[in-house]
């Protein structure tokens, strides 16, 4: 009995010693392990360069986007020193909640009107647990409103195109993110009956943060079954994103001329090269307006 009591006493004291040895911060650290920490800023904006990123806009943020593409036509007849064509898209994009975004816009080329819905399915976590990847489902549609020639069927269903994407990305650290995007495009408009209506493509995108508010991006789409009746190329883009306050500026060089997914994935007419100057300059400006403000209750203590 006495030995039991002594043993009990020893264990009780040992228990104390163990508790005493554990620092207060360590106890808090164990408690905090249960709070999920979702990775922030895999990409800085809803676009990497030309295509969408896994990011959705926060709830109540309205983005006013103005995208410009200054294009060169690589013909010998051109006399122009400056860009010969300009494509502009103006769009409004809104964060319905933190995971669901919607947008609508119009481009000057082809009178192309577009809209999309985007939902963040999986969020990467940076606390060791949970998913190592982020995944976002993208569904977009566009309407080609410009007049068509006599040999192309131009009824409504032929003018509508759809793009479905599963955007999968991972942030590998504070400065590097990578994205892979299996893409399905349904084109309503065909210029030849031999062309496929449905295209499969894979998008690859990366972001490298140079520091502060500046990052570098690269993006490429491989089209598995391109249009057959004329030559098309995979769109490639290199760019710099600069964000400050509520404004985000994206500068890029690319061979893509369109802004809407189905158009630039299936209809990029020129290859990316310096030889005949088919590189287009892109400038996108996004201005964010906060329509819903949080923390209305919060007052500073006097």
């Amino acid at each position: 009995m006495r030995t039991k009591a002594v043993l009990f006493l020893m264990f009780s004291l040992l228990g104390h010693a163990v508790i005493a040895q554990k620092g207060l911060l360590e106890i808090l650290e164990e408690e905090q392990r249960e709070i999920p920490q979702y990775t922030l800023g895999t990409f800085k904006a809803t676009r990497i360069g030309i295509g969408h990123s896994v990011e959705t806009r926060g709830q109540g943020i309205l983005d006013l986007m103005i995208n410009n593409r200054y294009c060169n036509t690589p013909t010998q007849y051109s006399q122009s020193m400056g860009p010969e064509k300009l494509n502009t898209r103006i769009a409004l994009e809104y964060g319905i909640d933190d995971r669901l975004s919607a947008g609508a816009g119009g481009s000057t080329w082809n009178g192309l009107f577009d809209g999309y819905l985007k939902y963040k399915l999986v969020r990467q976590r940076s606390d060791g647990g949970g998913s190592p990847l982020s995944a976002t489902l993208f569904q977009g549609g566009s309407y080609f409103s410009e007049a068509l020639g006599p040999y192309v069927e131009g009824d409504f269903s032929n003018r509508i195109s759809f793009t479905t994407q599963l955007l999968v990305a991972r942030k590998f650290g504070p400065s590097f993110s990578l994205q892979v995007a299996p893409t399905f495009v349904h084109k309503g408009l065909r210029y030849s009956d031999g062309d496929p209506r449905n295209h499969v493509a894979v998008g690859l995108g990366a972001r490298y943060r140079l520091g502060g508010h500046l990052s570098m991006v690269a993006e490429y789409y491989v089209v598995v079954n391109p249009v057959e009746s004329y030559d098309t190329y995979g769109p490639l883009a290199f760019g710099v994103n600069w964000d400050v306050g509520n404004v985000m500026l994206q500068f890029m060089v690319t061979n893509a001329t369109h802004f809407v997914e189905d158009a630039f994935i299936s209809e990029t007419d020129y290859n990316f090269n310096l030889k005949n100057a088919t590189i287009n300059l892109g400038l996108s400006a996004t201005y964010s307006i906060h329509l819903s403000r949080k923390l209305q209750h919060l007052r500073q203590r006097p």
Binding site: G41, K44, Q59, D98, D243, N246, H290, K294
Partner: peptide, 11 residues
């Protein structure tokens, strides 16, 4: 207060 500020703050 503004959702975008959280991104800037953290990043």
């Amino acid at each position: 207060e503004k959702a975008l500020m959280r991104e800037h703050f953290n990043e």
